[in-house]
Design a protein around this nucleic acid. Structure first.
Lengths: 147, 147
DNA sequence: TTAATTCCAACCAAATCACTCGGGATTCTT
DNA sequence: AAGAATCCCGAGTGATTTGGTTGGAATTAA
């Protein structure tokens, strides 16, 4: 059970934008370069994020992408859902997929707990949280480095 | 991010065996029938579970499969790992996959938390837990039914 | 006007998934 | 010893998904 690279790249790109929130639009190619993601592929990803309302774009020269809201207001779940669909571990939990065995399926209890656990992590972690954590880590590392 | 049907079927089959633990070997076709899984496909799945030490098999007439240990001693994680490999949400967390960005990757903190959350559910839930919960549910349902 | 950018749709190779098929090996029952 | 019930194994397969690439059109700042 792996997350697609799309979801991973998308989150990295979103974090890249979060780190520069408020500094104006960032062109796609600089994000692609910093994050080492194929430019054309990232284009598709940003398109999805735009349609989902996570980022906004400005076309033309000096254009680029930026987060649509402040990083505190965007959860990891929102980014990943936009790219990979909702993170539900098995089909039978999703609204329409309901399987006829559900009334007596012992496994379903497990999937529910698993889905809850995943939700609570992704839904409660914002881009700001991750950027902040990372700044602190980097800080400590630099500190270590110079001793 | 979906679990493969293999993992789902495998868990269902394991729970089926857990429900009958101590009653001797159960032939594959009866499990397949009760759980509505293709017999040949389930055969492959049971093969993997056997190699992983989750079930044992007895060949020949009157043979079949049974859990290798009591359901209290088998976690959901063990079953799923045997079939789909470890449930790690992204490659860069797995031992050998370590990516070079890890030292400054803000996303990785999220994946770690997600992996921990998943682990703690799957690693702490045993087959016995699920069978027991299910028996209670079924009990309540029957109760409701006859009022 | 030109260069920088986003936007869009089609295409593609490789991998994975969810099975199926066919037959061999083993063991119980009679 | 024969036959039936089982597990064991490896190969094949069609559909879908993944992880992109290609090529070009539209928009806008300088």
């Amino acid at each position: 059970m792996r997350l697609s690279t799309k979801g991973q790249y998308g989150l990295r790109a979103a974090l890249d934008l979060a780190d520069r929130y408020g500094e104006g639009p960032v062109p796609l190619n600089t994000v692609a370069e910093r994050e080492e993601i194929s430019e054309h592929y990232l284009e598709q990803i940003m398109g999805q994020l735009r349609k989902a309302g996570v980022v906004t774009s400005i076309r033309g020269a000096q254009g680029g992408y930026q987060l649509s809201r402040s990083p505190e207001e965007i959860t990891a779940a929102e980014v990943i859902d936009a790219l990979d669909g909702p993170m539900v571990p098995v089909e039978c939990l999703s609204d329409d997929g309901g399987c006829k065995r559900s009334s007596f399926c012992a496994a379903q209890n497990l999937w529910k707990r698993l889905a809850d656990a995943m939700d609570s992590v992704l839904g409660s972690t914002t881009l700001a949280d991750l950027v902040e954590e990372n700044r602190q880590n980097r800080g400590n590392e630099d500190f270590m480095y110079f001793i």
